[in-house]
Nucleic acid binder design. Structure first.
Lengths: 358, 358
DNA sequence: TCTTATAATAAAAACGTTTTTATTTTTCTT
DNA sequence: AAGAAAAATAAAAACGTTTTTATTATAAGA
């Protein structure tokens, strides 16, 4: 008998197998499995026992067809195949890591949709929502005025964004307090005596790039100084960009004495540039980096960072999406993280400051 | 009339909508859409036109239920949430990138399944295959004797592995010629005069770790030398491991004068360790790194690497999986890539070698 | 004890496809 | 021009669920 049921379960058991095995109808089986109160406790137990014995697992496609749900949680992932940009998006592993952890144990599978440009991302988001390719969506790289947020918020499709746009819309999101972080880094360098401070930043269409400039400017203003806005470089956040922009900035008549780098990729490029210029971090130039994959400690020398493990944000993204899909109100599903300052350098050039600033 | 059809397509059109619109039966519609030869060219055209007009997109769940296919391509992704290991798996973004590119335009969606240990990976692989959660599977981190390969090859479930096991099985795979790469790096250092060479390697249960030791040993043997096997360190490939093992090795009575690092993460750790020991790359110690995300050029100083963009492997993984799922023979779907040597250092300590080797 | 309400379960319909079988229409033979 | 063969299409069944509706068994009320 045991062998019989094992043989029968060769091709995985369906609700019909359970029906045949228990004598109940498939409708009753379904209700018992879903925990409907109309079925007797005794019946449910018998069905659950049979399900366990046969190793029954509900067929996701059958459920999906009937309920209209997909049991998929989609993530938009930037694809950058261009040579020299291989570092771009290294943090995505950690984002997916976090989301995957959050989804673990839920009924949802994680599916990844690549995109190659912002326009592409919008098109993919629209397709996912229109065709109901998933029950919810997560994406990052939010613009100041982001069409995805506008579109999805209006259509009511569940989504959580990593980053906030600058429109007064209500939507679930997770973000880093970039204004605060840029302010903290800049203020620290100003306190160390720096006046010519560079900000190696993202392109200004990105919301977080603007946030960082805001914080950068505020730090100067609070110190009663004019911000060195001519030293704000905007670009893709590749290692190459970090290197090139650092070289360019250091070539100016009044070069920066300190750098604020907004991710680890640009930091690596900046350090590479400083190295090839023969400048030593902590002596000739100070660097403060933003770090989300805990890599700055291994640079030589280790640099001061604002550290916020992005995997934590990923986990929260996943949590929020699950809660959103379960019907929770998007307005309550928002969180902004403040990174932690990890001081590894004095940030005052060991006191030798003042050469460029009388 | 136009407004009517647009209004009707509010909730996406199904095959029934097309039937009503064209007057044909749903069976004929289906056949026309699938390109069956039994339907008249004229009919097909009419149906295709209607499909286009209404913006018809086949419902994946309906197809999946009927055909038993899932239209999902699954990837197993290692999750390492432990602090200090955030760099672990940075290359996964590029792997997913490549796979995603390959899948682009196909009917398959990319789904990601996380795992936390080898045992977990086996369990997930089994679940994916048993429950038909996807039509095919891609995974990496292959062991010398890998249960996933054995299991999947036997069951006939389509899969492509990134890496080869050491059992004589037939299965689709993509790999780097690790034996060749380790040999190339080691031979180059030997030619530079080095005799005490360290290999910062993965744990020896991994197939590629053994491959690298093979190449390492072969280089010594070909030079008529005894391999410095006491300088082979095995561990997780984290930055921390790279740092710690370098510190340990350099503390030996006869420390290595050169390091071969098997990925960029360990390289960063090793360079960090050398920096804090006050040793300069290219003067006190030579380093050759294996690099798959093109980052070594930005280290200070840039190190010589064996470069193989992993995104290319990812793309091939995706291609192979598609072809496998289309029925192609696994035996023909294998490719081994030889990385490119990018010389950025002399690798002979600028000639000052010989101190440790009389 | 006989209705009647209620609880428990069974049966049927539906989700959107593909595929098999049945029917109608057309074309070819003679 | 009638019948048979072939072609084209329609109808029905099936995939595995959930949900609605129908039926049966039980309990309550008089």
């Amino acid at each position: 008998m045991a062998e019989g049921s094992i043989a029968a379960s060769r091709l995985s058991p369906t609700i019909k197998t359970l029906a045949a095995h228990t004598g109940y109808s498939i409708g009753t089986i379904s209700k018992a499995l879903r925990g409907s109160p109309v079925v007797t406790e005794q019946t449910r137990e018998a069905i659950l026992a049979a399900a366990k014995e046969l190793g029954y697992q509900a067929n996701a496609r059958g459920m999906a067809l009937r309920t209209g749900k997909t049991y998929q949680a989609a993530v938009l992932m930037p694809l950058t195949a261009a040579a020299g940009y291989e570092w771009d998006g290294v943090e995505y592993t950690q984002i997916l890591n976090g989301i995957s952890q959050a989804l673990d144990g839920s009924d949802y599978q994680l599916s990844v949709h690549g995109y190659r440009s912002y326009e592409d991302a919008c098109a993919v988001a629209r397709r996912v929502a229109d065709q109901k390719l998933s029950d919810g969506l997560i994406f990052s790289g939010v613009l100041a005025d982001d069409a995805r947020i506008a579109m999805l918020a209006q259509s009511g499709f569940p989504f959580v964004s990593l980053g906030r746009c600058r429109k007064p819309l209500t939507y679930a999101h997770v973000d880093v307090d970039n204004e605060w972080a840029a302010h903290a880094a800049t203020a620290r360098l100003i306190a160390g005596g720096h006046r010519r401070i560079a900000l190696i930043n993202a392109e200004q269409r990105f919301s977080y790039a603007l946030d960082r400039i805001d914080g950068f400017v505020r730090a100067f203003r609070e110190a009663g100084l004019e911000p060195s806005l001519d030293l704000v470089a905007g670009g893709d956040l590749s290692t190459r960009f970090g290197r090139d922009s650092t070289l360019t900035l250091r070539g100016l008549p009044q070069p920066p004495t300190a750098l604020v780098c907004v991710n680890e990729s640009t930091t690596l490029g900046a350090l590479s540039a400083l190295g090839s210029l023969g400048l030593r971090v902590g002596e000739d130039v100070d660097v403060i980096a933003y770090d989300d994959i805990n890599v700055s400690a291994y640079f030589s020398p280790p640099v001061t960072t604002l550290y916020q493990p992005i995997e934590v944000l990923g986990r929260r993204l996943g949590e929020f999406l699950l809660r959103l899909m379960a019907g929770e109100d998007a307005a309550r599903l928002t969180e902004v993280f403040r990174p932690q300052l990890i001081a590894r350098q004095a940030d005052n050039l060991g006191g030798r400051l003042g050469r460029h600033n009388p």
